[in-house]
Design a protein around this nucleic acid. Structure first.
Length: 634
RNA sequence: GCCUGCGUAGCUCAGGGGUAGAGCACUUCCUUGGUAAGGAAGAGGUCACGGGUUCAAAUCCCGUCGCAGGCUCCA
């Protein structure tokens, strides 16, 4: 891996992305087009398309690229396919591969290419071809033919289907996908497949995938009683069970401590606000489709001459905390001497996400956000942003998270929808992006650039994670806002006795409880380190006559704020141990005659075969230290 | 919201036009056990909901709701 090079002035272009721990998929997009595995995957996509056209003549084609672990192809099918058709499709594909079809490339100029696509009856490919000619100024387009199958395609491909390893691919799933990813377009049928360089590599991947499913936060959330989503409460509105609430509380405590040390002050704001505030900030009507329906209330008041008049007010569930915090900033005149002002709150927000997007704790409609807004001068932006990045790294170090990358999400001045998508202030964009970029370089954090991913009001640093099933999600986001202060008239008195607009940093290193806990469940596979574990210590006895003694140990631990409990079930000891293990309790204490006599306990750590007998006081001290230091290993 | 698939006990699942099954969990009793499942009995279901077809529907058909995997959007 090459050390990342950093240019000082410009934002790195996408092709020069910095390496990250999660760049396996990125590789595939940038510079790995010629790898043999990529050629195999891409060629298999053509083989799949050929097989689909054989089984469903008259179907038309969308895109069919290689992806991180295989490939997919999109179709408009003449007759529907189901996963039950996969064996037949796979058989047809294997048959095609055996034919040793050669991939032949042909370059056509504009008129020829479009005529060819018309002949082929491929309207979507034609649409894309026209765009390539118009917008990208391309002179020629390449077509690939293998056997009877012809496709407009950039390539590259294998020379012949004989280069495709037999049995190293597997059709995985059927899914709907909008043409060109735009929900205004037609819905195509996408067939996903895994493909590798060998049968062994495929099997290993499939096995790893199946093992990963055991870590799925929805599965573990149920098994470990962390949360439920109840239909009668509402979709996307999880209920946190006692065990899950412990994890929330511990994370919140961690955030409070880090923020206190970093000079934040805490605030608390209501869950609702008048919609008029959101019109002022510019979020409405733009954001309305992502909000719960508004609450209208009508009040009758006495008018000027004893007449009654109706006053209507509209309230909404807040989709974000920012305006509330901004109002706290505006609650009294501010001086530059007050800055930076850092307002923190684990704020509850509600966002009306599409029902089809909801998933466990990962995508919800009600969430508690590790929010804070930092109001500062331009001179302070860089150091404040840097401090935010340092806090990120501290949090991730504590939690042992390594599988993530930072994405510098920037403005795209060439975006045709730019006027609606971004504040129209090129100078503001350039200044803020420079400041964020400098802070990132100074932080030493590696990052990729996400052009066009900026927020409406400023550039941001998103933290991207992957779930066990390989889906990428944003865990948290840090934005530099140069637009809102003006809209809300936020200002402070500078040393020059003039009014100035503050810069505002929105930041949330721990994201939302919902999504962050989902990541943590999967990260730890449900076996949390002691400081986070819902039950930290379970005590069980060899026989009932030791229960009283064990009860005293539990009481002593709880006196030290340790989440300890006793297993009083009338099960055998073996069963009690098994129950503790399947509940993934980090510390199990066994007490019998020997321990009672010696004042010891026998400790069985989760995942450690070797047990240990030690004085209770020594155990307690070790445990309290591990909890206090938030040890990863205990 | 859209595409595809799936909804049977608290959980994991079998069954499938003739009236409901297993394992685990739960309750009670017996067992007092030294490191991953001691034994017995019991209770628990409007087979997601609504409509249709049928002598008869958990089973077939339609609709609704929910869930899963994708797409779009986002923390």
């Amino acid at each position: 891996m090459k050390p990342p090079r950093r240019s000082r002035n410009s934002v790195r272009p996408r092709t020069a992305r910095t390496e990250t721990p999660m760049d396996a998929h990125a590789h595939d997009q940038a510079g790995e087009h010629d790898s043999s595995l990529h050629r195999i995957r891409h060629s298999l996509a053509h083989v799949l398309a050929q097989a689909v056209l054989k089984l469903r003549p008259g179907s038309t084609l969308g895109f069919g690229p290689a992806i991180a672990d295989g490939f997919y192809y999109d179709f408009i099918l003449s007759e529907p396919l189901t996963e039950d058709d996969f064996p037949e499709l796979e058989k047809t594909m294997k048959h095609i591969i055996k034919q040793n079809q050669r991939f032949e490339r042909e370059e056509l100029d504009r008129a020829e290419a479009l005529a060819r696509l018309d002949d082929m009856g491929e309207p979507y490919k034609r649409e894309y071809a026209e765009e390539l000619f118009e917008k990208k100024g391309i002179e020629q387009l390449s077509f690939y033919k293998n056997g009877p199958f012809l496709d407009m395609c950039e390539g590259p491909h294998v020379e012949s289907t004989r280069e495709i390893p037999a049995g190293a691919f597997k059709l995985r799933s059927l899914a709907g996908a909008y043409w060109r990813g735009d929900s205004d377009n037609v819905m195509m049928t996408r067939i996903y497949a895994w493909a590798f360089e060998s049968r062994e590599a495929l099997d290993a991947h499939v096995k790893a995938y199946q093992d990963a499913l055991a870590r799925d936060h929805k599965k573990l959330g149920k098994e470990l009683d962390l949360f439920v989503v109840d239909d009668e409460i509402g979709k996307g509105l999880p209920l946190w069970l006692p065990n899950g609430t412990v994890i929330r509380d511990e994370l919140e405590k961690l955030a409070r401590e880090l923020e206190f040390k970093a000079g934040y002050v805490r605030v608390a704001t209501p869950h609702i606000a008048k919609t008029s505030l959101y019109y002022k900030t510019g979020h409405l009507p733009y954001y309305a489709s992502h909000m719960y329906p508004f609450m209208e209330l009508t009040e009758t008041r006495e008018g000027e001459h004893g007449t009654e008049e109706e006053v209507r007010e509209t309230y909404c569930l807040k989709p974000m905390n920012c305006p509330h915090h901004h109002k706290i900033f505006a609650a009294r005149p501010r001086s530059y001497r007050d800055l930076p002002l850092r307002l923190a709150e684990y704020g509850q927000v509600y966002r009306f996400e599409d029902s089809g997007a909801l998933s466990g704790l990962l995508r919800v409609r009600g969430m508690a956000m590790n929010d804070a807004h930092i109001y500062c001068t331009e001179d302070q932006v860089k150091s404040e942003f840097l401090a935010v990045m340092r806090m990120h790294q501290e949090v991730y170090d504590i939690l042992g998270l390594t599988e993530y990358y930072f994405r510098f999400s920037t403005w795209d001045p060439e975006d045709p929808k730019g006027k609606d998508k971004y504040i129209d202030d090129p100078e503001g964009w350039e200044t803020t992006q420079r400041l964020v970029h400098e802070a990132m370089v100074e932080s030493g954090a590696r990052f990729v650039v996400g052009k066009g991913e900026a927020a409406f009001y400023g550039p941001k640093i998103d933290v991207q994670f992957k779930t066990v099933t390989g889906r990428e999600e944003t865990a948290s986001t840090n934005q530099l806002d140069f637009g809102i202060a003006q809209r809300l008239g936020l200002e402070y008195v500078g040393p020059d006795n003039q009014m100035h607009r503050p810069y505002i940093i929105h930041r949330a290193p721990l994201g939302t409880h919902e999504r962050f806990v989902a990541f943590l469940i999967e990260h730890y596979g449900g076996a949390f380190p002691t400081w986070l574990a819902p039950v930290q210590v379970r005590v069980l006895t060899v026989g009932e006559r030791f229960d009283e003694h064990a009860e005293k140990l539990v009481a002593a631990l709880r006196g030290e704020m340790v989440r300890a409990e006793m297993d009083r079930s009338s099960e055998t000891m073996g069963k009690k141990i098994r129950n503790a293990v399947t509940s993934k309790i980090p510390n199990v204490l066994v007490v019998g005659e020997r321990e009672v006599e010696d004042g010891t306990v026998t400790l069985r750590r989760y995942g450690v075969q070797q047990q240990e007998t030690l004085p209770f006081a020594a155990f307690q001290e070790r445990l309290l230290t591990a909890i206090r230091t938030r040890s990863q290993t205990i």
